[in-house]
Each structure stands twice: as C-alpha cells, then as structure tokens.
Amino acid sequence: MAEAPTVEALLERLLERDRSAVAPALNLVDDRRTEPARAANELLDRLEAALYESDPGRRRVGLTGAPGAGKSTLLDALVRRLRSQGETVGVVAVDPSSRRTGGALLGDRVRVRSSARDDGVFFRSMAARDRLGGLAEGTRAAATVLEAVFDVVLVETVGVGQSEGDVQPLVDTLTYVAQPGAGDLLQFMKAGILELPDVFVVNKADQGAAAQRTLRELEAGLGLGASHEDGWRAPVVAVSARDGTGIDALLEALAAHHAHQAESGRRAERRRQGRDAFVRGALQHRYGSHGMAALGGEPALLARLEGDANATGFGLVQELGREIEEALAKPRPRRP
C-alpha cells in the first residue's frame, strides 16, 4: 500500500479542495488503530475549525426514509440536477451491517452514470457497523471531509425511525422520503419524530392517486404539529425520481430552507446543536454513564459545551475524553 500522507499534507490539500485527497482522508478517518485514529482526530478537528469560517454556501443535506422509498433513484436525480447547475456533490451512503457476521453489502443502488468521468461527484458508501454511536461518528467524519471539497454533501441513510435522530444533528437540512401508501408514515408518526425533517418528499408521484393520498395525509399530519421552533414550516414536495417531475421543486425547497437558516442565523445555531449532540453521543458511546458521571454529569458537560462555543466537536470529544480517562484513573477521594 502507498505511504499514508501526513495530516498536514492532507489538511492542506483538502482545504485547497483537492479531490484526490478525499479518498485517503476518508480511509484515515475510518482507521481504528491508535496512531491513525489520533491523526484522524487531529485532521477532523482542524478541518472542522477551518470549515466554521468557510463559505456558508456549502451545505449538508440528509436523505432518509424507509427501504424501498426510492431514495437511491431520487439521489441519482438530485445529483444530476445539481451537477447541471454547476454544483459539486459529495455523497455518503450508509447501509446496514449484518449483526451476525459484521459484513455488509454496499452500493446496491442506482449510481450516477456520469460519475466515472466527472470529478464533480464523489461517492462513498459506508457500513453502519455497530449502530450505537457508530453511525453518527463515522458519518459525521465522512461528511466533514467531503464538505471541505464539495459544494453539497448528501448523506443517505435507511431510516426506520431511529436513524433520523442520528442524522439530523449532522446535516443542515433533513429530508424524509416517503412512498405512496401510508404504512411507513404511520410508523413515523408513532415514533414521534415528525418534527425532525425539514423537507418531506413523497416519491413515486407517477403512481397517481396513492401518491396524492399520501401527500394529503402528510400535509394534514404536519398541520397538526407545530412548525419548527425557528418558524420554518416543513413543505411536502411530490416528486417522481423516475421521470424527473418535482426535482426542481425539491431543489427549490432545499434552497428555501437553506436561505431561511442563513437569514435567521439558524444555520450556525443548528451546527452548534449538532456538535453538542455529537459530543454527548460520542462520549456516551465510548465511556457510558459511568464516564459521564466522572466528568461531573450532564450539568458539567453543558457548562463545558457552553464555554467552548468555538471548539470543534472532534476536538471536544478528544479533550473531554482525556479528562474522563484521567478522572477514571484517579483514586477516588475518600470523604471524611
């Protein structure tokens, strides 16, 4: 295997938006061995810090929905349209891992046919592996690397309720893809996370009456709930990824959400919340409630997150992690 590039070199190339640095950077941030993991964390910390200052035009969009909702076809149509508008696109697609064997089949999806010769598209598939925290951490790292180089980052996951909660903190706009037929919608409403997505898509609009019914149900369902805290009302867009209808309307809805966030100052705030959720999740995952207690519990964590408003998520996980490890290593002071 070729010599691994240094963190310094990778960082420089990524910030120059050098496409050829993306794959080695993604390989590095996926590496669990001690030394590469340390290097990866340094890279991600510095990259995220640089991105705080970066062009607010760049954005991360999550695409989630039940299996069979047609997310991949929709993704394909979205990438084509974005490319035709001159925007570069990085895609990270997460597929489930087999619980029993740890193996995974990735990329059983429609791929963007033009991508082989188009440097403006990058596709990386990932296995969810052990889902607790794993999905959020790996996906966040990949999205951070891709965001350095591409205008739009699309994160595709199979949503069966919980993963929306995992993906939401790491994207600026969460899109939920429903298909005609109310079954999955009902599940979704039961799960009580109807308020998470920023944009709803009813795919397969070419199926006529069934799609119209789902559209109406969704609109009615959303009408019952309150709009998002920042005054955004999630629109419902009917598309047919197959024949391309509604793709423009969807892009407009995504752009409208982006503009709304920029105006309301909500984008920065949401990224902060996303960072906090990530830090909390990662620490929980690594050290459990015992570790959190050693840090001083939730109030202490909140204070630290408040205080370090400009620190990156990756940096905080590293720093607080070290503190937890030290605290756990210390003998407990005996009370008199």
Binding site: V22, T101, A104, D108, R111, R117, F122, S125
Partner: peptide, 24 residues
C-alpha cells in the same frame, strides 16, 4: 464479514478504477 461494494453490471474499466479509489 467483508464490506462489499457491488454496483451491478456494465461498468467501464475507468468506473471500476475510480470506484475502487473513492470507496477505499
């Protein structure tokens, strides 16, 4: 236990090479 990228049929050699690199 492997993670498998399978993209179906009719790929050009360039597509395969690019996919191998991008997918790591």
């Amino acid at each position: 236990g492997m993670e498998v990228v399978y993209e179906g049929i009719r790929l050009t050699p360039e597509e395969i090479a690019r996919s191998a690199r991008d997918e790591g």
